[in-house]
Simulated scan of single mutants.
Amino acid sequence: MSDKPDPETYFAGAYWGPRKESPEECARRAADFLDLLAPADPFLAHWYKPARRLKDARKHPLMPPDLPTLTELFRRGVNREKGGPIFEDLGFTFWFDNGGPTRDCAALRIKCGDYSGGSNYCVLTLPTDGPNADRVLTAPVLAHVVRSMALAWEPDWAMATSRIHRDLLSEEGPAGTFVGWVTYLSRRRGVVPPLPAPVRIEPVEGQGTLVVLTPERLTASNPTHVELGQRVLKLLDRAGLMQPVTR
């Protein structure tokens, strides 16, 4: 039995409030996202339809994105009681992955078209260790991931960070919002104020702003990273940018 601690796990997520959209509209956004995401890294350019077994999944690739296939997947993910009526206002949900083993896999879970008062989301689970993680868990790749989410889904807020870092900072900000390693804020929320070095601020095609905390890999075990995240969170909160996605 190894005494080596489990690696810090990372994810990216985009979140937006109620937005009524059809399965076709959700599929178009998903296709745009997959196309935008693919250049980030070869690991993020291969996706497969959900299947019980890995070898079966690889028979049904989702790349390049096919709108009729994605539309059908969203349509099957409609919220309903078993054998009962469809809850149209709760939108559509489905998940898929890139066919890798457990610790070296990326997975996407999407909820789109919910206009009941809840939030919609696109969450990307990232690999935990190995060569793919070494390449993907970098500031440039994750900035590309979050930028792709912002352009495709037009969320209110998006980020990429570790789960431990999320837990540390989410206790300090408004419910449902916090500062990640990379954070996106829609311009609908306001203007991002000047932030301390080494934080980098980048515009996102007129839609909002990307905030990158540090160029090196962010870890919750580094007190400098945690302190910087807390400081930036307070500045953004003071500027009125960290409201919950839904109230």
Results as ranks from 00 to 15, higher is better:
residue 2 S to C: 04
residue 5 P to V: 06
residue 7 P to F: 05
residue 10 Y to V: 08
residue 14 A to Q: 02
residue 16 W to E: 04
residue 17 G to F: 03
residue 18 P to Q: 05
residue 21 E to K: 07
residue 23 P to N: 06
residue 25 E to Q: 15
residue 30 A to K: 00
residue 31 A to S: 11
residue 32 D to W: 08
residue 32 D to Q: 14
residue 37 L to D: 06
residue 38 A to F: 12
residue 40 A to H: 03
residue 42 P to M: 11
residue 43 F to Q: 12
residue 49 K to W: 06
residue 56 D to P: 05
residue 59 K to N: 13
residue 64 P to H: 05
residue 65 P to N: 10
residue 66 D to L: 02
residue 77 G to N: 03
residue 78 V to A: 15
residue 78 V to Y: 04
residue 80 R to L: 15
residue 81 E to M: 14
residue 81 E to S: 14
residue 90 L to T: 02
residue 91 G to K: 00
residue 93 T to P: 00
residue 94 F to N: 00
residue 94 F to Y: 11
residue 96 F to V: 04
residue 97 D to I: 08
residue 97 D to T: 08
residue 98 N to L: 07
residue 99 G to F: 06
residue 100 G to C: 10
residue 100 G to A: 12
residue 101 P to M: 06
residue 109 R to K: 13
residue 118 G to A: 14
residue 133 A to C: 06
residue 135 R to A: 15
residue 135 R to Y: 06
residue 138 T to H: 08
residue 140 P to R: 09
residue 149 M to F: 08
residue 149 M to T: 02
residue 157 W to P: 01
residue 164 I to D: 09
residue 169 L to E: 01
residue 169 L to M: 09
residue 171 E to V: 12
residue 172 E to D: 13
residue 175 A to Q: 11
residue 176 G to F: 03
residue 186 S to N: 08
residue 187 R to W: 02
residue 188 R to V: 13
residue 190 G to H: 03
residue 192 V to F: 01
residue 192 V to P: 01
residue 192 V to A: 03
residue 196 P to W: 04
residue 196 P to S: 05
residue 197 A to N: 07
residue 199 V to Q: 02
residue 204 V to T: 10
residue 208 G to N: 09
residue 215 P to E: 10
residue 219 T to Q: 11
residue 219 T to C: 13
residue 221 S to L: 12
residue 222 N to K: 14
residue 223 P to C: 11
residue 227 E to V: 13
residue 227 E to H: 12
residue 232 V to P: 01
residue 232 V to A: 02
residue 233 L to T: 01
residue 239 A to R: 00
residue 244 P to W: 02
residue 246 T to M: 06
